[in-house]
Every structure is written in C-alpha cells, then in structure tokens.
C-alpha cells in the first residue's frame, strides 16, 4: 500500500472544513423558515446527501459499464466505493426526510415518488452487497456487480416515473406542492446555505470514495498475498 498521497490529506482537511462551514450556514446563517420552523434547517443536509447519493448511483452504473467493456479491476473498485458511500448518504437522506416529514406533514413516511424511489434504491444497494458477498472469485464478483448496478441504474428511474405517473390516480399527502413552495420562497441567505451544502457534500463524497477505493486496493493485496502464502 502506497503512503497516503498529499492531495488526499489536503482533501481530508478541506472536507472537515467545508462540513463545518456548511453546518454553520445551515444552523446559524440561514434564516428560520416561517412555516416549518427550525426543522427546515435539516433540509440543506437532506438535499446535499440526496445529491451525492444520486451522483454515486449514476457513477456506479457508468463504471459498471466501463468495467464490462475494459475488464479493468480499477473500475470495479470505483464502483464498489461509489455504491458503498452512496448507500450511507442515501440512508441519511431517507432518515433526514423522515425527520422533516414528521413535523411538516405529521407523518414519518409518505409513499411519495421520491421517498419510495429512494427506499427502493437503497434496497437495490443492499441487494448489490449481498450478491457480492456470495461470490468468492474476484473477477466474477466484479462482473456480476457491474451487471447488477447497470440493471438497477436502468430500473430506478423507471420506478420513479411509474410511481409519479400513478400518483394522479393514487393521491398522496401534500408532498410536491409543499417542497416546491420551499424552493420558491428561498431567500438569498438560504440559497447560499443550500448551494454550499451541495458543494460541501460533493467534496466529502469525493474524499470518502477516494478512501474506499484505497481500501479496496488493500483488500486486493491481502487476497493476493493469501493466495501466495497458501501456495
């Protein structure tokens, strides 16, 4: 394992700083939202985590395709990293959304398209890890993983579309109208906090993925050493 590159060290520090700034902006800088009160401050992190969760999902599907074409293990490492970090962030998105929904709509959960798709996506992620766990051969593990991320990447948007199309027949609690109102009524300071949260989580996302990719490299090294020793 190579020593930690300087760029990564810098990125670590930057991640902590932007997280701190983003927290400050969300907690103190942005004005209190008038309709929902303090809980609206969760919104900045909710959007930030949702954005990177989605980004990771797309990146995983893309690197899955690249892996299948090139058969280069480095894309598999990247894919695993993207899925794992996104799983963590998407979990946060769902929990934060729930915490927000409780005082705002008086329910922990609504079967709104975005929430439902997020939950289904999270299940696809979990299935992905269960699939990988059941395979010993690293090359086969990488191939199956790539195929499954690709299937998930195609199916998740269709799920979203399907639920959204049927919503007109199947009414759900307020949902979309409320969220749009927020966006429209965002003041300048709120926008600063909002965009900074997006930026901050992107940095943190890159940092975590980098660490996870290095971890996979180490895993691979251990597997190779084990083979060598046992021979």
């Amino acid at each position: 394992m190579q020593p930690k590159p300087t760029a990564l060290k810098i990125l670590d520090v930057v991640s902590i700083i932007v997280l701190a700034i983003s927290t400050y902006l969300a907690l103190f800088f942005a004005p209190t939202e008038l309709v929902m009160g303090q809980v609206q401050r969760v919104f900045y992190f909710h959007i930030g985590t949702a954005w990177v969760g989605l980004l990771g999902f797309v990146l995983a599907a893309v690197s899955g395709v690249i892996y299948l074409v090139t058969k280069d293990m480095k894309w598999d490492r990247f894919e695993v990293a993207a899925v794992e970090v996104s799983t963590m962030f998407f979990f946060l998105t769902i929990v934060l959304g729930s915490i927000w929904a409780r005082p705002a709509w008086n329910t922990w959960w609504t079967w709104d398209p975005r929430l439902t798709t997020a939950a289904v996506t999270e299940l696809i992620y979990i299935a992905y890890f269960m699939l990988r766990q059941g395979i010993d051969d690293p090359e086969k593990r990488a191939r199956f993983g790539a195929v499954y991320t690709l299937l998930g990447g195609i199916s998740a948007p269709i799920t979203f579309m399907v639920i959204r199309l049927f919503r007109s027949i199947h009414p759900v609690v307020v949902g979309a109208a409320n969220a749009n109102q927020d966006k429209l009524s965002m003041t300048g300071d709120m926008k600063i906090a909002f965009f900074f949260a997006l930026f901050a989580f992107t940095i943190i996302f890159i940092d975590l993925i980098w660490h996870r990719v290095r971890l996979s490299g180490l895993e691979e090294k251990v597997e190779q050493l084990k083979l060598k020793v046992s021979m």
Partner: peptide
Amino acid sequence: LLSAMSVQTRTREVLLPILLFPVAIPVLLA
C-alpha cells in the same frame, strides 16, 4: 438474467427474490 447470476453464488435460491424484486418493481406496479 438474475437467476443465471444467483445460482452461481453461495446463497443461491435465497438471493433471487432479493435481487429481482427491487428491479422488477416497475413491471409489477404497472
């Protein structure tokens, strides 16, 4: 496609519904 994958894993039969259902949600819903 997914059953061709799941039979090659250690968990085999158990894995198929877990892999298949989240991906097949659109078709079941529709």
